[in-house]
Amino acid sequence: MPTAQGVSGKVSYSENLSAVFPFRIASPEHYLTAFFRLISNDALGTANTFNGWKNYLEAPLFYIGLITILLVFQFFALADRKRKLLYGAFLGLWLFIIIFPWFRFAFYGFAGDYYKGALSLFIPFSFLLVGLLGFQEIMKGKKPNLIVLVISLLLMVVLIWYPYHEPKVTISQSVQIRASLFLVLYSIFISMLSSDKFAKIILPLLLVTVILEARDFSWPAFNERVSLHKADIRNKKYQFDNSMEAVDYIKKIDQGLFYRVDKVLAR
């Protein structure tokens, strides 16, 4: 049996969202959250400790591996002009949606001010696609552009460590350190790919580093989130308290077709 009026419908908030000026920009914490969640899922805290724009689930989530960022820069340094324009426009479209919230509201049918599944899936995978195309350019025999590599590394490190002084955003120093280290490592590996002598050693090393990063950066999301334990049911915590027995009792004494039960329980 569902609760109350459990069907979907339009809420009046959609009118508020559609009334926003289309080229109004978002708040600084929104952009900071979007950037740091490109660096790591947990760059602004994990689950309940998340401190950024919105919450852990509804904030933008663009992380898809740090090497992707460097490889995207390499793609725009190495690919031919036509492909640069094509993929540049492709990524530019997503960037536009991130910069101007009205277009994000429109993307979600003015249902709410959040990111959720779709954009947090399409944007990182678009990024990954362009990153892989950049990697393909190198694998096809083009030498990585070392100047662009150094500039992209410095840019990322500066953006990661810049003192933003935004009280609504708490950046994890642990993530800052680890992300910087991985970026430096990837930059070294990518630069060494230009040498035929090192390529055979570097590729397996690159793979191992990517796996290590994936393991390290996904650990908090899997292991540091509050979840229900079997003991919580035994110990009558949360919704497993004595109200379970109370509801059973009501159902036993009253088999009426329709009535509601309400609670004024302070948990």
Binding site: A4, Q5, R260
Partner: peptide
């Protein structure tokens, strides 16, 4: 059970 308090992304308008 049927109640009145609930969380949903889109409750009935």
């Amino acid at each position: 059970f049927f109640g009145t308090k609930m969380y949903q992304s889109h409750n009935h308008k």
